[in-house]
Design a protein around this nucleic acid. Structure first.
Lengths: 292, 292
DNA sequence: AATCTAGGCTCAGGAAAACTGAGTCTCAGA
DNA sequence: TCTGAGACTCAGTTTTCCTGAGCCTAGATT
């Protein structure tokens, strides 16, 4: 008859994870987003943890958080532990379902770059199942369960395409556009996540031009492209994403004024890929398909 | 307006922990004990994990478990990750409450060896708070939140005392005991976790003696000691645990026949101790107090 | 063979944890 | 002064987690 008094309980794993995310990202809101919960949940977790420990982990200054000395001292160990756990989990998932390749991508990239390539990929490797998750920002590479990530970024490794931008519009509208100044007479579509595109382009391609850039602001670039094809106005085209439309003639570039941005479309892989695994094959296939 | 589709969810941490424990310990029952839940809970966790993964982690053969290839391949990574997490948690707890020293001990050791020493320790270091948790088996050193562990074991490092055993009884009963054969005329108390004591002793101290060893079986050694003091019978005394009673005269050893067992009372520390931390000081104090 | 036992399984019910949503508070910057 | 970001609170709800009892199987025991 064993006696089993509770003794000191281990803090709940979820609370530790919440603390780690909040500390690493510097805020409950950011942690909440990473963990797909509301900030209130993070707050509650951390508070419970602090209560159990009898010590504060964060200083709250109404405008955000500041790690206490205690928090800062223990954070690295937790980050490393959860990183390892994430890696182990990914390995587990990958080994359990070797034929599923999980891809994380910017919504626009998913729709405009990746999606058109999938039919051919499926035809060439029907046994591979592709799962695509669209998200605004690259996931934490050490944690999230993705085999491949497709995002725009400045890092040179894994570069699939330069980021070259220039105005595009439906062929019917192009007749009204002979020089950059003409842009002010047509609606200029703006994508909310690339709201600086017009300025970046104008700065280099038409210095001195004062662009009004009034016009609809859309939250999905793919939607903006669709609208543009339908003649709603002029859009800054990212070459990699509209190459298909240019080729098909559904969009045209009224000016010969491409501007190359420092970043580019980039494929990264959280874990090293072996060449003849499904993920490795998809990666190679996508890389080879990039110029197309 | 960010789009946030659920995408592939991360498996619950608790399920991963359950899997890791079951795999490492080779059974749901053992895992359940380590995690302080029922086996059914472990079973459910593992089943949920397997369902989510779409792959088996264990082969169930009605008589126990066998890791599948998949399970065996991923186990080490999980064990390491959870070990680190445990270490981080311990560090956190220790830093958050530096003056609390958590000790895990065998119930008998806690009551008969540790407890009598505490008053003096408290007097010498009143700022240190001691927390004692009694348990039948040493905890997983890499995980459990204890600074010091006191158990009997064969390992030589950290040895506080040899395990020397011999029959003891109340002084009044000693008159009836002149030679080992007399033991059969008195009740021989047995502790359920040290049920072999009588045989071990008799083998060496009185070879050939046929001991009936009938008598009450108690589940707590400290209780057996108390009963013995009250004259209920004869008990195999473990020197380290009854030294106080011998000194006080409340128990006597009727025969001069000590037997030294291979193991001993042992103090171990999951994490390295620094000498002038509270845990380190308690450890040193206890070590120095051992001969007493 | 019949029984015993260890260990896993299932299922329903209930406890505990986690999460949300709406509203509040506070400060920094415009 | 206003606004917005970010954290807090609290009630209510959903989800997860756990237990407890009984069942099932296969090796061990008699």
């Amino acid at each position: 008859m064993a006696v089993k008094p509770p003794g000191p309980r281990q803090p709940p794993l979820n609370a530790l994870r919440a603390f780690e995310a909040a500390a690493r990202l510097g805020g409950f809101a950011a942690a909440a987003e990473e963990l797909n919960v509301t900030p209130g949940a993070i707050s509650a977790h951390v508070k419970a943890l602090e209560t159990e420990l009898g010590a504060r982990l964060f200083d709250r200054n109404a405008r955000g958080l500041q790690l206490t000395g205690l928090g800062a001292r223990v954070l690295p160990a937790f980050t490393e532990a959860f990183d390892r756990l994430g890696q182990a989990t990914q390995t587990l998932r990958a080994e359990a379902a070797p034929n599923v390749v999980h891809i994380a991508a910017l919504p626009s990239v998913a729709q405009l770059w990746l999606s058109p390539r999938l039919p051919r990929l499926r035809a060439e490797a029907p046994e591979i199942e592709i799962s695509i998750t669209a998200m605004e920002a690259p996931p934490n590479l050490k944690r999230a369960p993705y085999d491949l990530c497709l995002f725009f970024g400045p890092e040179p490794d894994g570069r699939l395409a330069e980021d070259v931008i220039f105005p595009v519009c439906a062929p019917a509208l192009a007749e009204q556009l002979h020089q950059p100044e003409d842009l002010n007479r047509l609606p200029c579509l703006t994508d909310s996540t690339w709201s600086e595109d017009w300025h970046l382009w104008a700065q280099q391609a038409a210095p001195g031009l004062r662009l009004a850039t009034r016009g609809p602001v859309l939250s999905l670039y793919a939607l903006a492209v669709e609208e543009t094809v339908n003649g709603a106005g002029v859009l800054i085209g990212h070459q990699a994403l509209i190459a298909g439309h240019l080729e098909a003639g559904t969009l045209v570039a009224p000016f010969d004024a491409p501007v190359r941005l420092p970043g580019g479309l980039r494929m990264s892989n959280p874990r090293p890929l072996r060449a003849n695994t499904p993920a490795g094959r998809v990666a190679r296939w996508l890389r080879d398909s990039a110029p197309a």
